[in-house]
Design a protein around this nucleic acid. Structure first.
Lengths: 139, 139
DNA sequence: CTTGACCTTCCAGTGCGCTGGAAGGTCTAG
DNA sequence: CTAGACCTTCCAGCGCACTGGAAGGTCAAG
């Protein structure tokens, strides 16, 4: 299987597959006499795995670490479980942050609706975003 | 006011302030005879504004556009209002995405808890992340 | 024989918001 | 006079996951 075929089968580009090889996610495949990459069947499964893992929010570095364990003959289950838990915690955290930012923005939108453009002086730049008497975004 | 003093007053680094000047967020200040930057009082207000706007989730490019209006003598209210609305929509969208990812990760965590490491064969790489019979992350 | 699709390597750039370092100038205190 | 704290410019790099392009090799069909 040549790289273009594998790309089509996996939905990636040849560029991306070469990039994965270069960064240690994919092993270098055997070559044809003329130097073309010649992939075995498992290559597609590996790319599928990478896609799934990315879909779960893992970074390429994390995926690399999982694959390294597997390639070393170990079951990466424990490691994967830890990664999943960590990402869950991460996401909870970002959800909380985003929610706070959303509330802040809603406050700004309310203020914007109540703002008279003429009241905005040059010194303050913009009373919606940074009112003189209320430096921090309020609740 | 020299750049170090302004940096201390605003909580930024001198590097960052020079970077803001370079990228058009801050006007180039007058210089002392020896070439040192000599900032007027308003510089701090402008940096504070940038910080507040960033806190509201605006990118430096967006902040630049607001400042450009203001510097051009226009009240940026309408523009700011549009940016706020757009960011609110953005955040709603990302919150929704993150929530979906969280549910997917919770599913994975459940599966991980139920997985026997011995069941994970080499071909599949990892049955938690990419089970052979269930290629896409389920609900 | 030529065309065109495919493949190879290597180098460089994207966006974002800085950050680091080198090499040198200036100012103040002791 | 010297130390050291500050300032100047310019160039380069971070992390992330690619993406683009140049310059050239290979292969099958017409």
């Amino acid at each position: 299987m040549r790289i273009g075929e594998l790309a089509a089968a996996s939905g990636l580009t040849t560029k991306t597959i070469r990039f994965y090889e270069q960064t240690g996610l994919m092993p270098g495949p055997p070559r044809t006499p003329s130097g073309y990459r010649d992939y075995p069947e498992q290559a597609k499964a590996r790319l599928d795995f990478i896609r799934d893992a990315q879909g779960a929010g893992l970074s390429l570095a994390e995926i690399r670490s999982v694959l390294a364990l597997r390639d070393g003959g170990q079951a990466p289950c424990a490691h994967v479980t830890a990664l999943i838990d960590q990402h869950l915690a991460d996401i909870e955290c970002r959800l909380a942050e985003l929610t706070v930012t959303r509330e802040a923005l809603r406050g700004l939108a309310r203020r914007a609706a109540a703002t008279d453009p003429a009241a905005c002086t040059e010194d303050e730049i913009c009373t919606i975003l940074a009112p003189a008497d209320d430096p921090k975004v309020d609740r």
